[in-house]
């Protein structure tokens, strides 16, 4: 069953052109000039119910804009979309009963009040049946381990605690699809991991569709089956996360500790990422050379104390993907 269907969705913002200098500022005050800036340029994709999808792209690629159109916050310039069979912007209210959303930067918790009060308001907003609400609330409190700070004003909670409350609040009406915009931003590694586990749990147990944007490669790797990548408002990749990794995993990272300082190292297909004395981090392009030949070339002239070979972090893969597409664009 289709959960999300997007067809040639487009969003164009009118941006006031800012002119140079004070004279320009004054001029634009009285006679503003507008330029069209396409934030999302005709993207098409579908998501099945129960899928976990990462929506990726560099800053300003149109990720947030897309997610806001899918949740009915923004009206598109053209194109269509259907979420759970509803058109988000014309059937906003009807859809809102069935989806949940978490915007990392814009909290729905009441800042001066304890989370339990926000939950109570949520139950009124979503018109939950009393008994069901209480059961659901207690279940989420247990699952997200919110007990200890349920009665503490939100302003006194740490960022991680707050985000857990935030996600719990967005799940209180048992949505069929959950949209998350940068859910782990600013959190430390342990908290990030916990939040990912919780989201995944909801997906496994309740079949909730998960659609998230993130800058964090870990979110993608640990949480999502599929990745959709956009850049400059257009779709550049749509497929399994595993395939994305294979396709773009053309480099390996080799960390070395040598007995002596190797000086200037020049090898085909090898780039030195960092070096401090005898410690080296290399990036090896496996299309041009092999790890074996690089290591044997090194052993011929140096003694190796320690070596580790790793896949580069997801972060680098994504960055490289953008790079590849930018390069392709430049050629064509």
């Amino acid at each position: 069953m289709r959960s999300i269907q997007v067809d040639r969705l487009e969003k164009i913002f009118q941006v006031k052109k800012k002119q140079e200098g004070l004279a320009g500022s004054l001029k634009s005050l009285f006679r503003p000039q507008y330029a069209n800036k396409a934030a999302v340029e005709g993207i098409t994709f579908t998501v099945e119910q129960g899928e976990t999808v990462a929506f990726l792209g560099p800053n300003g690629a149109g990720k947030s804009t897309t997610i806001k159109m899918l949740t009915g916050i923004l009206h598109p310039s053209s194109g269509t979309a259907e979420v759970l069979g509803c058109c988000p912007w014309t059937e906003r209210s009807k859809l809102a009963y069935r989806i949940g959303s978490v915007f990392g930067q814009k909290s729905q918790l009441w800042y001066h009040l304890p989370p339990i009060d926000t939950f109570e308001l949520m139950s009124r907003i979503y018109e939950l049946r009393r008994e069901d609400y209480k059961q659901r609330r207690d279940n989420l409190i247990e699952r997200f381990e919110l007990g200890p700070y349920l009665n503490t004003p939100v302003r006194k909670l740490s960022l991680g605690e707050r985000m857990r409350c935030e996600i719990a609040a967005s799940l209180i009406h048992r949505p069929q699809a959950l949209f998350l915009d940068e859910p782990t931003i600013g959190l430390d590694a342990v908290v990030k991991q916990r939040i990912r586990e919780l989201i995944l749990e909801m997906n496994r147990e309740e079949g909730t569709t998960i659609f998230l944007t993130s800058h964090d490669a870990g979110d993608v790797e640990k949480l999502c089956d599929r990745a959709i990548v956009i850049n400059h408002g257009g779709l550049v990749f749509n497929g399994q996360v595993e395939i994305m990794k294979q396709q773009f995993l053309t480099h390996k990272t080799v960390q070395l500790v040598l007995e002596d300082d190797p000086g200037n190292l020049v090898l085909e297909g090898v780039a030195v990422l960092s070096s401090s004395g005898s410690r080296l981090t290399l990036s090896v392009d496996t299309g041009l050379t092999t790890i074996e030949s690089v290591l044997s070339a090194l052993m011929a002239s140096h003694r190796i104390v320690d070596v580790t070979v790793q896949d580069p972090p997801m972060e680098d893969i994504i960055t490289r993907m953008y790079g590849t597409f930018v390069a392709k664009e430049a050629v064509t």
């Binding site: 959960s3 979503y126 659901r136």
Partner: peptide, 15 residues
């Protein structure tokens, strides 16, 4: 994969 309409039981009484 779950098919939503069969497994989904909403807890909202909005209708």
């Amino acid at each position: 994969m779950l098919t939503a309409d069969e497994s989904y039981t909403g807890i909202s009484g909005h209708d």
